[in-house]
């Protein structure tokens, strides 16, 4: 019990560290972005040089990195990530509008990727037929060789459901791990004994494979979700989905650093959170 509490404490501490470091990186990105120090009053002929110098000195004091970082982090904790320069809207508002779209795509894509990856891994391992195993590995290898952006385009033109695009792009990225996990499970003494005693396949799947290995599956789902985050940008940008990935792409093209920094901080937190949960579920084995 104590070790579990220590593990949870350590994981939460690590998560807090990542968020603080991510916040520092995001704040530095905004603070040192080109044009940050530019003051429009500098072109105001009615302000004299001494006043301008005093204003500049005050801005310098207020915007020193530690002060700016503390202010940025406090504002971020309140949900205020600043103002987008290209969309002329608060970053929080933009994220609030687009997050549900990305969340649906991520959930559907991750579940679909795990489902199809699981079926393919099952085909490669369970029937113990070289042909099926080769087919599964070959299909996964072929899908891995195709850039996700090209897959997204192909599915977009075929008018296929977008979560399916994400699922197929994710499939080869989870297949290898699922296959190894299944192979390990199927060669475990408990499962071999159960098979030797004639336990039915359905029971084997639910009690031994899905039940006993639930923590590993949960950790794998976390990894798959992180992979899916990485696929958000090409899928959303090329398939014209108004989600967070497309927002990041547009922000990068417009060099909208407050928006990029806010997005980076949020995505870092989400990914680190999922990573921490996966590690906790897996008992730190991952």
């Amino acid at each position: 019990m104590i070790s579990l509490a220590a593990r949870v404490g350590r994981s939460l501490l690590s998560l807090a560290g990542v968020v603080l470091l991510g916040g520092l990186a995001a704040a530095a990105l905004v603070r040192y972005s080109p044009g940050f120090d530019v003051d429009e009053n500098a072109w105001n002929p009615r302000i004299d040089a001494a006043t301008l110098a005093a204003m500049h000195a005050r801005r310098e004091r207020e915007n020193r990195l530690p002060v700016f970082y503390a202010r940025y982090l406090l504002a971020a904790a309140r949900g205020d990530f600043g103002q987008s320069e290209s969309f002329h809207a608060p970053v929080t508002e933009l994220l609030r509008d687009r997050a549900p779209v990305s969340a649906r795509l991520l959930a559907g894509g991750t579940l679909g990727g795990l489902f199809f990856g699981g079926i393919l891994a099952w085909l490669a391992v369970w029937p113990r037929r070289a042909g099926l195993s080769l087919f599964a590995s070959g299909l996964s290898g072929l899908l891995l060789a195709i850039p996700p952006a090209v897959l997204a385009l192909a599915f977009f033109f075929a008018e296929a459901p977008l979560p399916l695009t994400m699922a197929i792009a994710l499939l080869p990225r989870v297949f290898g791990t699922m296959r190894t996990l299944l192979e390990d499970l199927l060669s475990s003494p408990a499962l071999l004994a159960a098979r030797a005693r004639g336990v039915r396949p359905g029971s084997l799947v639910f009690r031994y494979i899905l039940g006993a290995a639930a923590p590993q599956w949960f950790a794998l789902a976390g990894v798959a979700l992180m992979q899916a985050f990485g696929l958000l940008i090409p899928v959303e940008a090329l398939c014209d989905v108004p989600g967070i990935g497309q927002l990041a792409w547009k922000a990068a093209l417009a060099r909208d650093l407050p928006l990029v920094a806010g997005l980076a901080l949020i995505v870092t937190f989400l990914v680190a959170f999922v990573q921490t949960m996966g590690e906790l579920a897996d008992g730190g084995k991952a």
Binding site: V18, G22, M226, F229, G230, L232, I233, P234, A248, W249, A251, A252, V260, L263, A264, V267, T268, V271, A272, Q275
Partner: peptide, 9 residues
């Protein structure tokens, strides 16, 4: 903790 494409962007 940051997907590669986000980091690159």
């Amino acid at each position: 903790s940051l997907p590669w494409l986000f980091l690159y962007i």
